[in-house]
């Protein structure tokens, strides 16, 4: 095999638990490496040898199709042995399950474990109990670092530079780990970040995250280069956080009219899976300004970059 990335970037930490804790250089290094994998992934021969002989476990306590598939493919393209584990969270008492599972898996000598869990902080707890590297694939309402990295890669490839861009993150900020990771990352790279949501979907204290806060889409989207929509969970639509789908879509759903408030070359993003007709209109989701499919492609590349960069740090590397 003669294909391999040119970048020799090594992630300085053993785990990737969040964007918080990454330096500017870490983020740029990962994005540069991921950029190379984008090109490799477009070739017929996609396989490299960075993780040959390594064991990767995808440990998902929360159902996920796309993130799990993305990590699985990333691991396989790097030559690792990949095992997927979906753990029902209801089986045993949660704290017990998590630590017991960690100890059990650790005994099998994996090199990297990718973890998604419904509780904020659970991935960090698990990381303390194992000897291998741990990647956070989403913990509760805390962080989803690979999503933020893939979003940044998508933006960077389209806009050239993230610094100076205005990014509007819209929707259910309160419950979103994607929003938290993105706010930190985009701020680190010098973007101007706005969050737009009804007050019931904004966490108290969000003003101190280094973002501009508005409850109005027209105001929030004015002059935006990037419009990033978030998913609204079904159980939050009917009167608990917002009154109804109709009202949410009327005031916060991204349709062509609201998108017109943004710059004419603004690009639309969504971490998926989308609720068409709730937070985003189909015409916009499938339109010329949408980057949503491109985000998925960048996802595999970013996860390959993260795996590669972590593996270079592993014992015996």
């Amino acid at each position: 095999m003669n294909i391999a990335p040119k970048s020799s970037f090594v992630l300085s930490s053993r785990h990737l638990l969040g964007i918080e804790g990454l330096s500017y250089a870490d983020i740029v290094g990962l994005l540069d490496l991921a950029g190379e994998f984008v090109e490799l992934n477009r070739q017929i021969e996609k396989k490299t040898a960075g993780l040959r002989g390594r064991t990767l476990i995808n440990l998902f306590f929360e159902a996920s199709t796309r993130t799990q598939a993305s990590f699985e493919l990333a691991g396989k393209r790097l030559g690792a042995d990949v095992m997927n584990m979906s753990v029902s969270s209801s089986s045993i008492r949660k704290g017990e399950t998590l630590i017991d599972t960690a100890i059990t898996l650790n005994a099998m000598h994996p090199d990297i474990i990718v973890v998604r869990h419904h509780a904020s902080g659970a991935v960090e707890l698990l990381a303390q109990k194992v000897d291998c590297s741990v990647i956070n694939a989403g913990d509760g309402q805390h962080e989803h670092p690979t999503q933020a990295l893939l979003d940044a890669l998508t933006i960077r490839r389209r806009k050239g530079e993230i610094s100076g861009l205005t990014v509007a993150i819209c929707g259910d900020i309160l419950h979103s780990r994607v929003a938290r990771s993105n706010i930190i990352l985009l701020n680190t790279l010098g973007a101007r970040v706005r969050v737009v949501a009804p007050s019931t979907l904004l966490p108290p204290g969000i003003e101190r995250f280094g973002v501009e806060v508005t409850r109005d889409m027209r105001e929030g989207l004015a002059g935006a280069d990037i419009v990033m929509m978030l998913r609204l969970q079904r159980e939050r639509m009917n009167g608990s956080f917002v009154p109804s789908v109709q009202e949410y879509f009327a005031y916060y759903g991204l349709d062509q009219k609201k998108l017109a408030y943004a710059k004419s070359d603004a690009l639309v993003m969504h971490p998926g899976p989308m609720n068409r007709g709730v937070e985003i209109d189909s015409i916009v989701a499938d339109g010329a300004q949408s980057l949503i499919r491109e985000q998925v492609e960048m996802g595999v590349a970013v996860r390959m970059a993260v795996l590669e960069a972590l593996s270079r740090n592993l014992p015996n590397a």
Binding site: G239, S240, P243, S244, E247, Y251
Partner: peptide, 9 residues
């Protein structure tokens, strides 16, 4: 007393 109405609309 459980679910708010469509206050905006």
């Amino acid at each position: 007393g459980q679910e708010m109405t469509e206050i905006g609309l």
